[in-house]
Amino acid sequence: MKRNENLVPLSRDHHFGLLCCWKIRQGIKKDIPYERIKKYVADYWEKNLSRHFDIEDIVLPEVNNESLQIQMQDEHRQIRKLIKSISQAGSRELLSDFADALHKHIRFEERMIFPYLEEHLSGEEMNDIGEQLLLFHQKEEDSYPDEFWK
């Protein structure tokens, strides 16, 4: 399905988010030390994901469906909590939980939130979202120097 052009920047971010999940899982499979993966997660959060969540807060009010709003907010809270736990603990299970939660969240947005917006918002409302994204969105960075996943 072709994504509305106004949501494409967020979908591109989602591509990098799925890549982040894959890298974490590869690191776990290769038995990479927790600290190396933890540093990557912190870097990804700081440079990409936290900003992406802030930007989604621009789009969230446009979702006039309470259950979708609640799920999005709950998943954002869960991921933030996992990020904090990863930074404070040493459990490899947390890394896996984070990758799973982020993957699930991205799929939810791509399969539920974006189609909802495309179906229920006018062209003008979608253009307003696109304009807001132009003001706040920054291109994802994928330049982490420690390629532990290879």
Rank of each mutant, 00 (worst) to 15 (best):
D97P: 01
Q132Y: 14
I79K: 00
H137L: 08
M112H: 13
R111V: 07
D13M: 06
L133A: 06
P115H: 02
R77Q: 15
I113A: 00
N64C: 12
Q69N: 11
D43M: 09
F16P: 02
L7W: 00
L95Q: 01
I129T: 08
K29N: 12
F136W: 11
E110C: 03
L19F: 09
Q138Y: 13
N4G: 09
D74V: 10
M126K: 09
L19R: 07
L95H: 02
Y44S: 01
M72E: 10
S85V: 07
M72W: 04
G130Y: 03
R25L: 12
A89Q: 13
K81G: 12
L102R: 00
F108V: 04
E110S: 02
P9D: 04
S67G: 00
H52T: 05
I106G: 00
S143I: 07
P9T: 06
K39S: 13
F53T: 01
R92T: 15
P61F: 06
H52Y: 04
S67T: 08
K29T: 10
P145Y: 05
E125I: 01
R51E: 11
I129R: 06
L7I: 09
P9A: 06
K84D: 05
I24G: 01
F136V: 13
E119T: 12
H103V: 06
L60T: 12
Y144G: 04
R107D: 11
P33K: 07
L134F: 15
L121V: 07
E46I: 14
Q73T: 15
R36K: 15
F136Q: 09
M112P: 02
N4E: 08
E5R: 14
K38D: 03
S96G: 14
Q26W: 03
V63E: 00
Y144M: 07
E125C: 03
L134K: 15
D100V: 09
I70M: 12
Q132I: 08
H105S: 06
L82K: 03
D100H: 11
R12Y: 12
E110K: 01
H137G: 05
A99H: 01
N64S: 14
R12N: 07
I129K: 05
L10S: 03
K47Y: 10
N6L: 05
H76D: 03
G27M: 02
E124C: 11
R25S: 10
G123R: 13
S143T: 12
E140Y: 09
D57A: 11
L19T: 12
S85R: 14
S67E: 03
L121K: 08
